[in-house]
Amino acid sequence: MNPLLTFVVILIGFYGLSTSSNIIKSVFCVTIIESGVILLFLNLGNLDGGVIPIIGDALPVGGIADPLPQALMITTIVIGSTVTALALMLCIKVFHHYGTVEWAEILSRESGK
């Protein structure tokens, strides 16, 4: 049940990308998709009744939640923030060049005009 709810968040993110009218909205939707994917990974790696994967004194009875996805997801969060920063910088440059951030107006200007 839990992974399905997270999958709905990812689908809402893709829907937002398909209907966004300006560039900043698209970057917001990419952020939503990133967070949704990371939550999906951690949700599937969760173990009911397990404990947090930190080395303690004795091996716990109920099992440990999977530590590999957690390591991979920290990398993914950092990459996602880098991409957001780069996209926003390009967005500022687009605004200074075209005077607007709407997708329709930017893509319809002929090249060289």
Binding site: I24, T31, S35, I38, L39, L42, N43, G45, N46, L47, G50, V51, I52, P53, A65, P69, Q70, M73, I74, I77, V78, S81, T84, A85, L88, M89, C91, I92, F95, V101
Partner: peptide, 30 residues
């Protein structure tokens, strides 16, 4: 809640502090 506290620390630092800051800077530059 999904038993990943290290990822939660990273997400709070990046997603709640740095990302809104760069959004505010870029929207005000426009």
């Amino acid at each position: 809640i999904n038993k990943a506290p290290d990822v939660a620390i990273a997400e709070v630092a990046i997603g709640s502090a740095i990302i809104p800051l760069i959004y505010v800077i870029s929207i005000s530059r426009q």
